[in-house]
Amino acid sequence: MPVAGLTITLAADEALASNAITEMSSQHEIVLGRVDGRYMAAVMDTPSPSRSRDLHGWIESLAGVDYLDVVYVGFDPDPPDAPAPQPPISSTLPSP
């Protein structure tokens, strides 16, 4: 149950970058955060490491993404018995 904090470096081309943002926001496993300049914070909450890797590869493959850095990885040590329903994307994520 990996939860990863990502720093996404968007392409300099603004059209490409905004396409990438649209595509990523359509993925329910990705929560997009603040954008500073070309850098965007994001959290990827996936049910399995392999899914994580796939998503990672998918993000990197987007034309509007130059780099993808993983800055944080956490595992849920106590997985629930049943597949957990995805919590709604919260707009109350604390900002630092």
Binding site: G5, T9, G33, V71, Y72, P96
Partner: peptide, 15 residues
């Protein structure tokens, strides 16, 4: 998730 987001935002900010 909050921790991950906080870390990501901190990294973005620093970048």
């Amino acid at each position: 998730r909050s921790s991950a987001m906080a870390a990501a935002i901190a990294a973005v900010h620093q970048r």
